[in-house]
Amino acid sequence: MPIFEVENMCRSFGGLKAVDGVSFSVESGQIKAIIGPNGAGKTTLFNLIAGSIQPDSGAVTFKGADIYALPPHKIAEKGILRTFQNIKLFPHMTVMENILVGSHRKMRAGFLQAAFPLPWTYREERDAREKAAQIAEDLGIDTLLDTELANLDFGSQRVVELARALAGEPEMLLLDEPAAGLNIHETLQLSEAIRKIMEKGITILLIEHDMSLVMDISDEIIVLSYGKKIAEGLPAEIQRNPEVIAVYLGTDNA
């Protein structure tokens, strides 16, 4: 029984069919990667799933519930959290505060409770801070907690973004090119981190250009080209698939 299903998702921008009838499903606890050449519609597909772009048509279900075309914060409330291809953190907040924003969906205090705090609001805040510190330690950024985000190097920012998403205790994580801009050493650390996340039983949907990383960690791969799904299968199958090879390397008769 898949935890997450996309059916016949479509979205055009003007005359361009950015995502054209894509269907796939993700099993619980699986790492599924979406690959494809630049402009294949991977990030658009992600934005459609996460609610930051409205789809033209299609269907999305998560844990049996319809989440089609919900706004982003509702998708997050359901337990699907994401990272961004071009890191989107909060530059005027510390690393700790950034991670705590991730805990937003797991906390309850609203405006009234914040203005008139009760013992449970303090407890909630303290617990969230402890959890954030724990996540930071797991990912090796615990020394940076009090640093203002704008002062962080690029690699650390990627890790903070991952930590922020984890603080929300997601059931499914959408990672949009997490290795983009990382050096070999940082990419290795990243794949280690992703493995740890997988061990916690979190389902992962991943867009990635780094083929060695994709082949290394993913259970299954979907290949997009010009908005359409052209192949789906195990990494080994995808590597041998002639259509995929044609898309990436071009064909003789092209």
Binding site: L81, G102, H104
Partner: peptide
């Protein structure tokens, strides 16, 4: 700082 990221966090 970023409305998009804030809403993605719920």
């Amino acid at each position: 700082d970023s409305e998009e990221a804030a809403s993605a966090m719920g």
